[in-house]
Amino acid sequence: MSEQERRPEDDGQDFASAAWSIPSYLLAGMAIYGGGGWLLDRWLDTSAFFPIGIVLGIVLSVYLVYRKYGR
């Protein structure tokens, strides 16, 4: 679909659903990888994996949102 053929309603709808789902993507990324890191910490009796998991989750979520909506 070229830029000219797009109807403005479609764009608005796309944009609204993107903006509303971004916070849940970020939360989900943090929950999955942070939770995994927390479980690893409990298992191995360390304390480093939880922060690493949180940061990894945020990075992956930002990457996902960028690839999905950023172009």
């Binding site: 789902s21 849940s24 993507y25 939360l27 989900a28 929950a31 999955i32 992956l60 990457y63 996902l64």
Partner: peptide, 14 residues
């Protein structure tokens, strides 16, 4: 790496 994020985000967090 990304499918778990999509799954959790759409079915639990949303």
């Amino acid at each position: 790496l990304l499918s778990p994020i999509e799954f959790l985000s759409n079915l639990i967090i949303a």
